[in-house]
Design a protein around this nucleic acid. Structure first.
Length: 274
DNA sequence: GCATTACCCTGAAAGC
DNA sequence: TGCTTTCAGGGTAATG
């Protein structure tokens, strides 16, 4: 399940392959993803233009074209954005294909179709609905302990749900929220607005460190995720609590517990996290 | 504003 | 063995 480190890894791995390339054709499966794909619009946007850059905002991938139009991609749960030779057979669940000028294809593959692929003209690009409400990116300079404190202030939600809300901090998902709360020693059931100053500082540090470490290890692959070159990540063997129900805590040996919050599994150590 | 629930969807795993 | 059921969850929308 791609979160910030996985999306960042995809962006970095694709950058040398697609920057400066022209898009010669666009094809789709015709199946609906999170939203329907407007193929004719994608074709119009991609015609006679080159790829200028590929960047990330939260879990969204932005491919900016020379025309200043943007292609917006979200990997959802099982989405993959990979390079392939045009001669290679397109795998099952390939929903969007961008044919590039060097004979390669940039393919969006998504079994569960929770992902999203859209295109926006230059005049639409600054007010893309999906990006408008996104909170601070936790790997940006703007994400400070003070900023986190400001976001948390007054919230009556449980901190686990709060951190998953992309309107506050953009890029965290279930795995890294569980991991960050563990490393900060904070129970996932605490009320967000009740965290003390020292706890907020610990949480801020944990979020940044966990994400940086995961980026360095090119993300977590539990099942589907691969980067733009088709390579899995390496962070999965370094998880402290996620998916470790019943196994001993790496700090105190207490068994890791699992509970369900907002229809998502939460993994935590009841001794280390207060 | 916030919590809860349902929905989208496929494939792996579990259960029978 | 083979079929059926359950579970996984990011984001959104409806409801209370």
């Amino acid at each position: 399940m791609p979160e910030l480190p996985e999306v960042e890894t995809v962006v970095r791995s694709l950058r040398p392959h697609i920057t400066g390339r022209a898009i010669e054709f666009v094809a789709t499966s015709g199946l609906k993803l999170r939203k329907s794909i407007d193929l004719s619009k994608l074709k119009r946007l991609c015609k006679n233009t080159h790829i200028k850059s590929i960047t990330r905002q939260g879990k969204y991938i932005l491919i900016t074209l020379d025309s200043a139009a943007i292609l917006l991609i979200h990997l959802g749960m099982t989405g993959r954005l990979v390079m392939a030779q045009a001669s290679q057979e397109r795998p099952k669940h390939t929903h969007v294909v961008f044919g590039l000028s060097d004979g390669k294809e940039l393919r969006f593959i998504d079994a569960r179709r929770f992902g999203l692929v859209g295109g926006y003209r230059k005049d639409e690009a600054l007010k893309v609905e999906e990006l408008q409400g996104l909170g601070v990116d936790p790997l940006s300079r703007a994400f400070t302990a003070a900023k986190l404190a400001q976001e948390l202030a007054g919230s009556r939600r449980v901190v686990k749900d709060f951190l998953l809300d992309q309107r506050h901090v953009a890029g965290l998902g279930n795995i890294y929220v569980c991991e960050a709360l563990f490393h900060a020693g904070i129970s996932p059931q605490r009320t967000a607005g009740d965290l003390k100053k020292d706890e907020i500082i610990r949480l801020h540090t944990a979020v940044v460190e966990i994400l940086r470490q995961a980026v360095a290890r090119r993300g977590t692959t539990l099942r589907d995720y691969v980067d733009g070159d088709g390579r899995p990540g390496e962070q999965q063997s370094h998880l402290s609590v996620y998916g470790r129900t019943g196994k001993p805590c790496i700090v105190c040996q207490e068994k890791i517990h699992r509970l369900v919050q907002g229809a998502r599994s939460t993994f935590f150590c009841p001794t280390c996290q207060r």
